[in-house]
Structure formats: C-alpha cells, structure tokens
Design a protein around this nucleic acid. Structure first.
Lengths: 227, 227
DNA sequence: GGGCAAAGGTGTACGGCGTACACCTGAGGT
DNA sequence: ACCTCAGGTGTACGCCGTACACCTTTGCCC
C-alpha cells in the first residue's frame, strides 16, 4: 500500500495539467504560475519541469486537455449544420473554461487537437463542395469565432462596467451613439446586467450571419478575383 | 538657452508616450517595460511614474497616441462607405504599429479615442437607418474587425511557419484538409510566402462579407427575435 | 538480493518584472 | 533669501520563469 500511495501521489504530466486547468478555472489564468501551481501540488516549482518543458508547453497542454472534452460529432447533415454544431460545442467548452480564450488569442497554438478542430471545420467546408480557395477565404473571415467567442472589444455588459450615473451622463454627452445603443441592449434591465452581451443569442447571430455569407458565396459560384 | 535646453529635455507625458511608441515599433511590445523605457529615456525607472500612473495607463496612452493618426473623414456617402473607409484607415494604423493589436486584444481599453472610434462607427450605422437593436447586434458581429485585423488564429503564412518538408508531410498525413487549403493559398508561391495570408485582399474579403450581411439584414427590416 | 542507471524531486541562484516609499534637488514665486 | 513643491533618484519587496547542481527513490538486471 505504501508503494501504491507512493505511486499515486507521484507527479505526472496528467496530474500537472489537471491541476493547472483546475487552478485556472478556479482562480483565473493569472494565478497559473509555475510557482503557484507547484505549491498547489505540494511540490517545489522546479519539479514541474520534469513533466513539462516550459510554461508555453504547459499552456498548450491545458488547451489540449480541455479541447479533449469535444465529442467530435460525425458530419451528418450538410456542411452548415456540421460546422455550426462544432463551433457551438467549442463555445460550450470556452464557457466552462473562460481562460481558454486568452490562451488561444495570445499565442499561435498548434497542438494536435487545435489542428484537429481546424482540420475538421475545413474538411466540412470541402465536403460541402467549397473550393479550396473559397474555403481558405472563409476560414480567415471566420477568425476567432471558430473558437466560440466574439472578440468583445467593447464590453458593454459584463464587469462592473455599468457605470456610475455621472459617468453614464458624461459618456452620453461625448459618445451619444454608444450610449444610445448600450441603452437599448439593457432597457429591460436584466438582459445586459444579468448575462452581459456576449450571450448565446448574440453569438449565434454573428455566427449565422457569417454562415449565411459563406453559403451565399458558395451558391453564387464564387471564384477568386483576377490574381 | 541653458534653461530652454533644460526645459526641453525634461521628461513629460508626451515624451514618455512617444518613446514608448517608438520602442514598441522598433523592438516589439515585450520590449516596453518600465525599466527598459526609462533606460531609453536616460532616466531611472521610477521617474516615469511622475508622468503615468502605472503601466496600464502607459499602454492606454500609447493606444490613444497612435489612434490620433486617424484623419476622421466625414461621413460622405452612405453608412457603408463611411464605415468601410474608417475601418480600413484604422487598419493602416494597425499595420504601422503591429503591437496595437495585442494591446487592444488583451485589455478592455476605454480611452477617449477608442470610444470615439466606436461612437463614430455606431453613429454611421444609426445615420444609415439601422435600428439601435440591429446596430448593437452588428457591432458584436463586427468584433475585432472594427480595429482592422482578423484574428489570424491559424497563421498559415507569416512567420517561419512554412514548415520543413517532413513537417509538411506529417501535417498532410494527419490534417489533410489543412494541408490542402494551405497549399492552394500558396500555389503561386509568392502569394503566401511573400506577404502572408492576412493581406489586404483577405481582410477586405471578410470585411465586405460582414458588411453585405449587415446590409441584407437592414434591407430586410430585421427586428430582434421574440424577447 | 545487490548493484546501478535513470527518473524524479530539491535548493539555490540569476536576471527580469511592476511599483511602494523615502529621499534629494533645483526651479519659481514671494 | 527663503520656501515650496514638482520632478528625478535609490533602495527594496515580492513576484515571475527557469538554469544548474544536487540528492533520493524507483525499477531493472544479474
């Protein structure tokens, strides 16, 4: 038994990655430092380096670990339902692990599961009859939305951003358009306050708008411009 | 004259921000640390804190400084040309200052010029007759493209990413769709190798696809779903 | 079972970061 | 001539990632 417990609480790449994901889920990405993570595992920081090459590899491992939650549905239905379903599924992962977004944004991650997702989406377009050139273009147009998030560069909802009254007044004075549009989103109060603006409906709106555009170009027999 | 030179080489917020922008342009965003920046200015790190509150404010200041390069064209033509022109102009700034993207991505910047750009685009939609609700939706769908960049999460061109032959072979084996689409983009060789994939045409493709979608929804009299 | 390589955990140290805080210095107004 | 106070300085703290040398434990082979 001593040996089994001994074996059980040995470190392993799996244990390290699991702890890193748990830590990021619980305390945010910034809490994931080699030192803090080691402490969480009851071990000295340098011990981690026997299991991951460096912090970048740790982050890659975290990405692949949560991307493993994908159920990889087969491609029944057309390209559109296949892609839509896949992207919405990745979105669910991203909602469970909010740090995923920042990790994917900040680095050119090229892990097997990342490439696998891209390959699956590209494959769905091609199986749907998209030319390689059009597929290439629409993949660029897809951008980060392929990972289930909109960029959210102007957060009009989430944080304690509901500004103080005098702040709101100043904003309305100098940026009347922002104020007006922000107001309409929240006029029923709980809409914005409760779940921000990047809610499911908002994301699907943008996703379908893109997919509509792709379908239209495909149907119209799009070919690359002159060259 | 002694006093004038003395005055001239005193630090100032402007000098600090200008040096920070120059440093980021020349050596990348990671080179912009308080210590390195101070050294560049021939001054001790803590001296900077008499002119910017902290590093976040420094970054905000840098953003506003380069956004000041906007020429703010008036809104001749319809909403579409106005917005298209504005976004492409911001894109030019972003191409001159590649670090801008990471700064905007990583933080919820709410400086006057950032808000001003958002307000101008929102204003163009509204002036074009878009309802506030539709404007709100399309702004979300716009996402980071409003700042002139596509997310570029799968960089198939830019860096030394043109993989070694055996790497390419392995990629083609496991991710045939990625390989095929990446190949088509570069089949004329100089296309991808020379200027990557996020070139002007690629960006405008995605931009116009979005604008087409917006126009179509607007023309169809889009109204928000049930509620 | 004894010996031994290899794998895994430790301790120390280095150079970076942002920035708090006490201090000094020199220019401007009275 | 003095005072004030904005602006530059020096030191220090607690983080960070990680190189490197060391020790301990494990598992295998004779």
């Amino acid at each position: 038994m001593a040996s089994s417990t001994g074996t059980r609480d040995r470190l392993s790449r799996e244990r390290v990655l699991a702890a890193a994901v748990a830590l990021a889920d619980a305390s945010g990405l910034d809490a994931v430092s080699m030192r803090r993570l080691a402490q969480e595992l009851g071990v000295v920081p340098m011990a981690l380096y026997k299991h991951v090459a460096d912090k970048d590899e740790l982050l890659d491992g975290m990405v692949d670990r949560v991307l493993g939650e994908l159920s990889l549905p087969e491609l029944t239905g057309g390209w559109r339902t296949a892609i839509r379903g896949r992207v919405l599924e990745v979105r669910q992962i991203q909602l469970r692990h909010p740090w995923l977004r920042r990790v994917l944004e900040s680095r050119a991650t090229r892990t097997p599961l990342v490439l696998g997702h891209l390959d699956a989406v590209i494959g769905a377009f091609r199986a749907g009859g998209f030319s390689d050139a059009l597929t290439h273009h629409v993949m660029h147009a897809f951008g980060s939305r392929i990972w289930g998030f909109t960029q959210e560069l102007f957060d009009d909802g989430d944080p304690a951003s509901a500004p103080s009254p005098e702040q709101a007044a100043a904003l309305a004075q100098y940026f009347p358009n922002i104020a007006a549009v922000a107001a309409v989103a929240g006029h029923d109060d709980d809409t914005v306050v409760a779940h921000g603006c990047d809610d499911q409906a908002e994301f699907e709106f943008a996703l379908d708008l893109l997919l509509d555009g792709f379908a239209r170009l495909h149907a119209a027999g799009w070919v690359p411009p002159q060259r």
